[in-house]
Design a protein around this nucleic acid. Structure first.
Lengths: 216, 216
DNA sequence: ATTTATATTTAGGCAAACCTAAAAAATATA
DNA sequence: TATATTTTTTAGGTTTGCCTAAATATAAAT
C-alpha cells in the first residue's frame, strides 16, 4: 500500500461519512488538491485492487476491505495527534501537518505500543473517536454550538473545520477541548452568539458556532 | 529534499566516516541496495544541488552543506531510536526499520520537542552520539572488544553492525547497552574470546567481538 | 606495455503519481 | 426534445527514482 493509496482511501472514508451515495471524482480531487483526471486514475487502480466500489461516472465508495485500511490510517493519524498534543506540546493548529506524515509509517508494533503508551485513548485532541485495532470506535453524542439555545451549557469536545486558520482562531480565543461553554444570548438577526467560555464572555459568529462541537 | 536524497546523504556520511577518500559508487550502491547506475544518477543530482563533491570516477564526498543535512537526518534517526527503545519497548533489533521511516518526517518543532521530551539524550540505544541542532556531537573513546586483551574490563557502549541478525544475536546473548564486560581469554588460533558479560561467561567469535564497542 | 578485469558512466526503459487538453457521458436548461 | 453546461474519462506528457545492457574509464596482471 503506497502513501498515495492510503491518502485516497482515508479521504474517501471521510467524505463518504454519513452519505449513502458515492463520492464524486471532482469532490475527491478538490479534497486531495489534485486534478479530477489523476483521481480517476487512482480510483481505477483501487478498484482493481478490490478496495473500492466503482462504476464509471457513478462516484466511488469503500468496500469492506477498503474501509478496513482507511480506518487503520485514521487510527494511526489520531493516535499520533494525541501524542503530539499531549506529549510534545503541539497546539491545535500545528498538529495536522505532522500527523499527516506520521500516519503513513508502517509498523504494527509501533501503533500497538503508541496506543499503550498513550493509555489507550478513546478520542483525539479534536474530539474525534480513535478506532481500535479492529476498526471499532465510539460514536459520540455531539451537537454544534449553533444548535443550542440560550441558557444551554456543555463541554467543548471537538471541531468540524480543521483548517489552520480556524484552529488558530480557537487558540487565540482560548477555546480548547474540555472548555466549559454556556450560551448567554443568540442574536436573531445573524445568529451571532454570546457565549461564556471557561468564565470569559465571547462573541462567536454563526460560522464559528457551526464548527464547534459540544456535549451537554 | 526528497526521501531518497536524504537517504543518499546519510549513507555517504556513514560510509565516509573516518576515511579521507571519497565513497565509491559501488559501495554506496551496495549499502543502499540499489544498482551503481542509479547511484551515479543520484550523485550527479546531489552535485548539481551543491551538496556533494564529485568528479566522475573519483567517488563522492559530502561538502559542508551536504554534511549539515546528513547530520540532521542522523539526529532525527537517533532521537527516534531513543524514543522507540525507551518509551515504546522496542528491542535492539526492532528499532532500525521503523527509525528508518521516522527519520524522514519533516517538522522542526517535532524534532525539538522530541529532544526535550527525551531529556536531551546524548547517545542513542546503539551507543552512537546524537548530533545537536547545530550538528555537533560528542565523539566517544570507544574500542572494539577484539582490540582488548585478557583481563581488560569495560562497559558495552554500542555496536558497529546493525543488521537485524546481529542485533537478535545480542538480544539472545543478553548483551545490551551498559553490560559489564571482562575478557577472560583470547584463543590464539581464531581470536575467539571468552568473555564475562554481566557475570555470565560467553564465547564470542572474532566477527562478533569486532562489532561490539566498549568503554574501558 | 599490453592485455584482462573491474568499476563507473551513459543510454534507453519502466512504474507511480501527477499534469493538461480533448473527447465522451451525464445533467441541467431553454 | 434539443441544446448547453458540467462532470468524468481518455489520451498523451512530465518527473522521480529505479532498472538492464552497453560503452568507457581505471586498475590489476601478465
Amino acid at each position: 500500500m503506497t502513501l498515495s493509496e492510503e491518502n485516497y482511501l482515508k479521504s474517501i472514508y471521510i467524505l463518504q461519512k454519513g452519505r449513502s451515495t458515492g463520492v464524486s471524482t471532482t469532490v475527491l480531487a478538490q479534497y486531495l488538491e489534485t486534478k479530477p483526471a489523476s483521481t480517476t486514475e487512482m480510483i481505477k487502480k483501487l478498484h482493481e485492487k478490490e478496495l473500492v466500489i466503482y462504476q464509471p461516472y457513478q462516484g466511488v465508495m469503500l468496500n469492506e476491505n477498503g474501509e478496513k485500511f482507511a480506518l487503520h490510517v485514521i487510527r494511526k493519524h489520531r493516535l499520533w495527534e494525541t501524542f503530539l498534543a499531549e506529549k510534545l506540546n503541539f497546539s491545535w493548529d500545528e498538529i495536522h501537518d505532522v500527523a499527516e506524515q506520521l500516519e503513513h509509517i508502517h509498523s504494527e508494533k509501533l501503533v500497538r505500543e503508541l496506543d499503550r503508551f498513550l493509555g489507550y485513548p478513546k478520542q483525539d485532541p479534536h474530539g474525534d473517536p480513535i478506532p481500535d485495532a479492529q476498526g471499532k470506535m465510539l460514536k459520540m453524542e455531539k451537537k454544534r454550538i449553533s444548535q443550542l439555545k440560550k441558557g444551554d451549557q456543555g463541554k467543548c469536545i471537538g471541531v468540524n473545520d480543521t483548517s489552520s486558520s480556524f484552529l488558530q482562531f480557537l487558540d487565540k480565543q482560548a477555546i480548547k477541548l474540555g472548555s466549559a461553554i454556556e450560551i448567554l444570548n443568540v442574536e436573531d438577526f445573524d445568529q451571532t452568539m454570546t457565549v461564556k467560555v471557561d468564565g470569559k464572555k465571547l462573541l462567536l459568529s454563526k460560522i464559528a458556532t457551526e464548527n464547534i462541537y459540544i456535549r451537554l
